[in-house]
Computed example of a mutant assay.
Amino acid sequence: MKVAVVTGAAGAIGAAVCLRLVERGLHVFAVDVDEEGLKRLPAQVTPVRCDLTDPASYELVAAAVREGAGRCDVLVNNAGIVVTTPFEEASAQELLREQQLNLQAPMLLTRALFPLLREARGQVISVVSLGALLPLAQSPGYSASKFGLRGFLLGLAMREKETGIRISIVNPAAVDTPMLRHEAATGGSPLNFLGRPMQPGTVAEAVVGRLDRPRLETNLPASDGWLVKAAMLAPGLVRRARPVLERAARPALKRYQRRYGIS
């Protein structure tokens, strides 16, 4: 039986990924700090409760996989957070935790599982963000972490022939999750609402779809990916266009806030 490790497994996207992997017959190690959330996952998964900002957690996960299955075919790096406190007001602890979870954790967990992935000629699939292509004024630390994660994965992909490990990046636009509701309530980027937020299952389908159709990078939706790439050919123009784009997005943001009773 093939084995997958999914981080952020108790969250909306992670839970949807776990369900689809179980349906495909994989043994899933579900990694999250949320013990109650892990209990809501399918009974077939093996929960691994840990805080991925703890340096000891990476070897803990790797040991659990070695002892419980002896192999790892797929690693899904999905865990992430966003700090919406204005940069100059955010605490050092907030900013550090954002970088630890969004950037350092996927790097170091991939490193801890690398021998098993290499032996299985496995795959690393990471849920990154279109925020890895387009900087967000309200969450520059998030942008930094996602730009960095994308760079790490693209660099690792350069060694695919050498390592035998396939790399896939999935960059979703806004997804209707508790994290997006947190952003809507606390001053996150209005640009999240230029398009309609997608459902977690859409992202999960793209993640699991990479098992059958490996692809280095998938942008969701694809049209947004092309628009962002084209816009970033002239970052100065994007900076000047920001007020116009944010004004255009605010009506949709207000509708979203009303939908969830966010004041």
Rank of each mutant, 00 (worst) to 15 (best):
E205W: 07
N219V: 02
L194A: 09
S126K: 07
M198C: 10
G155N: 06
K146G: 01
K161F: 06
P221F: 05
I167N: 01
L149D: 01
G164S: 04
S189P: 11
L211H: 14
A120H: 00
E183M: 14
V203Q: 06
L156W: 14
G141C: 13
P178C: 11
V170R: 07
E160A: 14
R121W: 03
L180K: 13
Q199C: 04
L216Q: 06
A173S: 12
A222P: 05
E119S: 04
D176E: 15
L149C: 06
G209R: 07
A174L: 13
A120V: 04
S139I: 01
L130W: 01
P172T: 06
R196K: 15
L154A: 01
R196A: 12
L130F: 00
L156S: 03
G188W: 10
A185N: 09
M198T: 13
V175P: 01
E160C: 03
A222I: 04
A222T: 10
Y142W: 13
K146Q: 04
L153R: 05
L134Y: 11
I165T: 01
V208K: 12
P135W: 08
G122T: 06
P135D: 04
S129C: 03
F147C: 07
H182T: 06
R159I: 00
L216V: 14
E205P: 02
Q138L: 08
V175K: 12
D212W: 12
K161H: 13
R196P: 00
A120W: 01
A144G: 14
L191A: 09
A120C: 06
F147D: 02
F147G: 07
G155Q: 03
I165R: 02
S168F: 00
A174K: 13
R166A: 11
R215I: 09
A185G: 11
L136P: 00
R121H: 13
K146E: 00
V128C: 03
A204F: 09
E205N: 14
G209P: 05
T186S: 14
P200L: 15
G141T: 15
R210C: 10
S189F: 10
R215T: 12
M198H: 04
P214S: 07
S168W: 00
N171A: 05
I125T: 02
G122D: 03
T163V: 06
L154H: 14
V124Q: 02
P197L: 13
G151K: 10
M198P: 02
L180F: 13
E205R: 15
E162H: 05
G122S: 08
P172A: 10
G151V: 04
V128N: 05
G195K: 11
A204N: 04
A206D: 08
A157P: 02
L180P: 05
M198F: 09
M198N: 02
G131C: 12
T163R: 10
L220W: 09
S145G: 13
A204Y: 07
G141Q: 12
L180Y: 14
V170M: 07
V128D: 02
V208H: 11
D212P: 06
M198V: 15
T186L: 01
E217K: 10
N192S: 13
K146T: 05
L134H: 06
E183P: 05
K161S: 12
M158Y: 03
E119T: 03
A173M: 08
G164N: 04
K146D: 01
S168D: 00
T218H: 03
A144W: 09
A157W: 05
I125L: 05
Q199W: 14
L136M: 15
P140S: 12
L130T: 15
